[in-house]
Amino acid sequence: MTSSSFSDILQFFFMGLQRGCIYALAAMGFNMIYNATGIINFAQGEFVVLGGLMMVTLTMAVKLPIPLAFLSTTVFVTLVGIAMERFTINPVKHPTVLRLIIITIAVSIIIKGLAMCFWGKNSHFMRHFSSTETLDFYGATILPQTLWIIGILLLIVAGYIYFFNYTMTGKCMRACAINRDAARLAGINDRKMVMLSFALSAGIGAIAGIIITPIIQMDYARGALLGIKGFGAAVLGGLGNSMGAIIAGVFIGILEALAAGYISSHYMDAIALIILMLVLFVRPSGIFGSSEAMRLKEF
């Protein structure tokens, strides 16, 4: 009995890890834009959906090989992110936080509508990256696709650390996040940094969509829930803190899976929202955020 209950826990852990990675990626996207502009981009979930749906079209209909489709999809969604910034965020005359947030909500509704027109209302599916034969691991099973998801998340994290610590552009973006006025005085083009943040966050969203679609399928309406879960992770990790977001995302995923297994699968989706509310009530700066820094922020 004990061995079977151990393998059960392990199974739920894998299940949670798989979804947690996606929340972590969504949360990273939120943070990137938050750091550059101080706003929450409510179209983040739509980037994930667009990534998933585009990947389905390119692999299942156009029959591109997976690496090529992966690349084209990421580029496509990145361009959508850039277009979003150029046409809806950049031209705003008096950019206040509230105004920009409302714009992102509008954009999310537009993207959702367009996705519905292009891809229809059905759920779309695609093949796994490699085999669908599950691997045994101490009595629990894990899909090769889950290993892909974990691997790609780790790669992105490594790329993220490198980019923000060792490249000039990354350092400029960080400078803008810390103090935009000072960064501008130092000669950094802050508007360009905003655009770049949208591009990166759209790209990361697209990758999240691409890697999860083989397991959960994708339809046009998934964005809102994915977005909220990612937002929950971002808040729990401390808004703006991407490493915190990754840990928080995986944590929420695992907690959800355990709740589904041991409490009720019915209230699984409520877990992220309950955590989100608790954090906002008790410690609005998040677990990994600093309350000092929080006080200086506008939102």
Binding site: R19, I216, S265
Partner: peptide, 20 residues
């Protein structure tokens, strides 16, 4: 006797209960 939400995308938890 397991149930799930119409938007659910992962039923492994319920199926494990059935299996057990």
């Amino acid at each position: 006797d397991e149930t799930y939400d119409p938007t659910a995308t992962d039923m492994t938890a319920q199926l494990m209960k059935i299996k057990n």
